[in-house]
Amino acid sequence: MALTTARMKFYIDVKRCIECGGCEVACKNENNVPQGIARIRVVTVNEGQPGETNIAVPCMHCSKAPCVAVCPVDALYHRPDGIVHVNKETCIGCGYCLYACPFGAPQFPKESAFGARGVMDKCTYCAGGPDEPFSEKERRSYGSNRIAEGKLPMCASVCSTKALIAGDAEEVAKVVRARVAARGSGGGAWGWETAYPAGPRF
């Protein structure tokens, strides 16, 4: 078997999420996320109505990422393993990615009185940043680097119902297929047709 680079992906199964908020807390604790910022957030749809559904929304690390396309300074980029990273040293904090992203992943912690917002902060897939792995600078700017340690993102590690699964796209797809087969119906991924349409809009 030829060795190919993994494409790291998240999979969130809305039929399994119980809105415990474990992923939110684990993420904040692991990455020292700035106040007011949620790199992953559990969203509830149709709350209090029949068919109430919950879903955790991190950065989806899209293969064709709209944020990467619109960033004027190329602060957003794909790592070889498909993880979308932001370089906080080059980000100018314009907020354009916020409007391009269908999931609302980019957020802007305000750090100083200068400027209307801070530089962009988002889910790093627990893979740190462009700085040297395990360095103090990386830890302060981006949080932990569990991928370099050979571990999975913290949110996926703590998910009690395995609604949130992370890893190589091939392995994740196997889990989805197994669940679809067991249920006899859809994979429970959220908004896929809208966020990743088959063809161009125009």
Partner: peptide
């Protein structure tokens, strides 16, 4: 504020 064409597939969510 309508940067559609720079996005792969021309897809814009606003």
């Amino acid at each position: 504020i309508s940067g559609t064409w720079s996005i792969p597939g021309g897809y814009w969510f606003s």
